[in-house]
Computed example of a mutant assay.
Amino acid sequence: MTFQLHHTNLAGDTPGVSTKLYWYTAGPEDADTRVHLQAALHADEQPGTMALHHLLPRLRDADAAGQLRAHFTIFPSVNPLGLANYSLRHHIGRYDIETGVNYNRRWPDLYPLVADAIAGRLTGDGRANIATIRAAVAAWIDSQEPRTAIQHLRLLVLKSAAAADIVLDLHCDDDSLKHIFTSPELMPGLQDLADWMGLAATLTAEDSGGGSFDEVLPTLYRKARIAHPGHPIPAGAETATLEYRGRADSFDAIGEEDAKGLFGFFAGRGLIATDPGPRPAPAPAPTPFEATEVLRVDAPGLLAYRVELGERVSKGQPIADLIAMDGPEAFMARRPILAGTNGFVLSRVMGKYVVRGAGIAKIVGTDILPARAGAYLLED
């Protein structure tokens, strides 16, 4: 059996503090395909951890039966530092409270860091070129001297991901339907993942603007491809952010369903030598993330939603009413917040008191929105 639990100590940034990071490995070390799975990079998002809790016994049993055809590395809760960010009974798992940086932002742009190391070493063999790039990334990571616990954590996780062929980062939204973020060149290759997840949407962008984890490797190989047009450089990793509904959706039955979908995806790929079960219904085709409106409010107030998740809406249709909380008609006046595009409601916010500028819903359309083209696409 190859199924094994590992841990490493992350030295703390203050006296007497250290944190353990746990992960599992399973499958042949010399397998042709390597899979990296992680959940709860935003440490306050637990549905992915619940899904991996239910996936791990399936992988353990498949390993015992000799069915694993890939090497799996699984971080069920990849950010124990974020788990400790608790203040006044509130978990601040999305941000590093020392720096204020979102844990899923500002991951490194790897190509400039390895460009010199791969210069003159690429050939006409695409697989060999991927191996050369991976070796350069691993060498760069090994050369780093992390100054903080979060830098240590990031380098450790990035080294695992950079060696993998499939990299899945499990998250959730606030109150949401299931969806994926991925790079456009990886579709329709990841359509089978979308199908097995039973998604409402796959949203694609080459660069969403924030340096998120799922864009690190596609950006690396894309930039290498552009810089070396005479050498074949395939997409070295299929990467995606998997958004498993909303924060409140951490339940056994849901986690079991999500684990079944992941297991089916891997079995359908031949990475687990077992029957994946009935093929799921096709998920919707991908749409550019620039066609998704992040609907915002221009004043503070209390939200009263008029629409449900998944509901189709038209441009100009009221999505919610904003109840005034100050001014001459405080707690009496309300005005509609209108959709800016045609599409369906993918997500809403759970907290109904909102401040000016807050995003309150995502509406997935099909037409590129002028205000989104070339803009910062994410919510911090």
Rank of each mutant, 00 (worst) to 15 (best):
E257F: 10
T19H: 15
E257C: 08
I141R: 02
S143D: 13
S176L: 06
L193S: 02
G12V: 02
Y221R: 10
K159T: 11
P188M: 05
L217D: 05
R105N: 12
L21H: 03
G351S: 11
A62E: 01
R89Q: 11
I363S: 03
E145G: 10
D175A: 14
A259N: 05
P218D: 09
T8R: 13
R105Q: 14
A304M: 11
Y376W: 13
T241C: 15
A227D: 15
E98S: 09
Q67R: 15
R372N: 15
H36C: 12
N104W: 03
P370W: 12
L295H: 12
L59S: 09
P318F: 11
T2G: 06
F266E: 04
T274E: 15
R247N: 10
L190A: 03
P108T: 09
S250C: 14
G230V: 09
A339R: 09
E379R: 15
A136I: 08
L217E: 04
V35F: 01
E215N: 10
N104D: 13
A161S: 13
R269T: 07
L170R: 01
D174P: 08
L199K: 00
Y111K: 01
I360C: 05
D32E: 13
P370E: 03
L338V: 13
M350V: 15
P276N: 06
G261K: 02
H36S: 05
D326I: 00
R312I: 04
G246M: 06
Y24F: 15
D298M: 12
I150D: 12
L37P: 06
A135Y: 01
G211I: 06
G270F: 12
F75E: 01
T148M: 00
V114F: 08
P47Y: 03
I74F: 03
D142F: 07
R225G: 14
L177E: 06
R356A: 14
